[in-house]
Design a protein around this nucleic acid. Sequence first.
DNA 1: AAAAAACTATCAATAAAATTTATGGCAACA
DNA 2: TGTTGCCATAAATTTTATTGATAGTTTTTT
Lengths: 312, 312
Amino acid sequence: MTITQLYYVLAVAENQNFTKAAEKCFVTQPTLSMQIQKLEDQLDVLIFDRTKKPIELTEVGKKIVNQARNIVNESYRIQDIVDQQKGFIGGEFRLGIIPTVMPTLLPMFLKNFIKKHPKVKLKIEELSTEEIISKINDGHIDAAIAATPLEEENIKERVLYFEPFVNYVPKNHRLHNHKKIDVSDLDIDDMLLLEDGHCFRDGVINLCKAFKNQTDDQFQLESGSIETLIKLSNEGLGMTLLPYLHTLDINDTEKENLHHFNEPTPAREVSIIYHKSELKMQIIEALQDVISGVIRGAIAFQNVKIISPLPK
Amino acid sequence: MTITQLYYVLAVAENQNFTKAAEKCFVTQPTLSMQIQKLEDQLDVLIFDRTKKPIELTEVGKKIVNQARNIVNESYRIQDIVDQQKGFIGGEFRLGIIPTVMPTLLPMFLKNFIKKHPKVKLKIEELSTEEIISKINDGHIDAAIAATPLEEENIKERVLYFEPFVNYVPKNHRLHNHKKIDVSDLDIDDMLLLEDGHCFRDGVINLCKAFKNQTDDQFQLESGSIETLIKLSNEGLGMTLLPYLHTLDINDTEKENLHHFNEPTPAREVSIIYHKSELKMQIIEALQDVISGVIRGAIAFQNVKIISPLPK
DNA sequence: AAAAAACTATCAATAAAATTTATGGCAACA
DNA sequence: TGTTGCCATAAATTTTATTGATAGTTTTTT
């Protein structure tokens, strides 16, 4: 049994297809066929059920794949140990970021980070929280920035900052004249929300529900970007909530529509999250340092109340 | 990096010598030299400091060895998964047993076990508790039978039985006329003990100390086997304590010297212990079943008080 | 229903890698 | 100063992995 064989098994299990898996491994399809057969012969058990289309794992196969993933990941950690020893911070690093954090946070720290750690090849993907959790678990990304707490067993979290929610209340809205807004003033029925799958949407819903016992799911309008939410709000379609960092770069006219909450200010907790195996921890810590550094100057709220990002 | 390379590293680390390690791996010495060099080149770090005689691990080397042991062990578990799936109970199994359990317990279950599980190649070693702990941790034995609880972080325990302590009081001893003996009657100064390193010795010391506050370490006589203890006792050199199973096959004259304790009967807890990774768990469970089966008929004490086997 | 496409297994050839035998060098030791 | 123990190196050999070509299925398309 070799690590390579186990790696091939993982590839086929993921792609449910020898040919595609072979491409991902940069070898030819017969290589996979033969090596996996060899492993199956040695263990004297079938890992894949090749009669099913697409190919499926057998019952033992599933267990073997779990263990194989374990072994392959642990083997990566040996290079990690060496890097750590040398104080080397480099190599490829895949980072996921949720959509409502991406446009504001990324420009703030990216330049700094690549300047400070030029040997790290950052590959950044915009992903939903759900996708992030799954990709951290299967090792497709090394870490992610998301709203927390997530209560995921295999995922660790390090808080980067708390980002308050800010009300965006257009001119003719009933709340426009309130200087400060209280959570109890919110009415989810005239609140513009992001479309399903965004955890910021779930955060807002949790916030509204916290004070009104509404389970009425008939929301008026939904959008995929916060930019659009602001535009729709300007059209008089309702108020909306913005994450604080988004309020920093809107124009002056629109700034007049911003209303802060009474304290304790509802806020989301934004963390860098990663698999509990702590692979590439040096880079994760480097990211944490850089981001904490740039945020320190940007957000200065004292009394915040964290809203859960989880649905229901 | 291959599992084989990691295995070679482990062998050299353990033997502190390439030549010996090569023998243990059933390859020639240049194989180890070259494969380990190759790994070191790939990682671009020295694992061994070859200037030291005998050879030593570098600082990184120690960390790498730990991780390598981890990976190699996890790789064994794949065969384990397959065996478990097939309900196959077989293969080599190394079992350690402490000296004071070995001669009484082994004859009771061995025949049964090899009859019930003929495919298991049992290799049994008599080892002290200390040796057992170290050999379980480095994977040299798969499980062991020892007095518990041990409070070892990486070792799990499954209790097999509780074995009462029985007093062996020779004719002319001050306690010989007591029908039952109370723990408070014991005096460690006229108690014959096993030599250092036996956990049964530590158990007896704990028992005596529990009622007398003696820290006087001047014990009269010490021996390596319980057989000898009985003989010495017969010579009038003091009383001694025997594990219950040892009292079953002594001769009738000597049986008259046996005195049970008042309840709660002090007893040792005897368990099968194994590494927390739970490798070869099917065999461990099979052993547990067989031993529990034979013991059920042999020991029937109700009210026991467990004495710790740990020194101090 | 036939043709095309998609997919895996197999085979022989080749490339790559691990292992061995033989040997050299170096340090410890007598 | 020769001997021994020990690791590294080199070349030869054996073993293993990989490839390109192709055959045999099943699925999809027309």
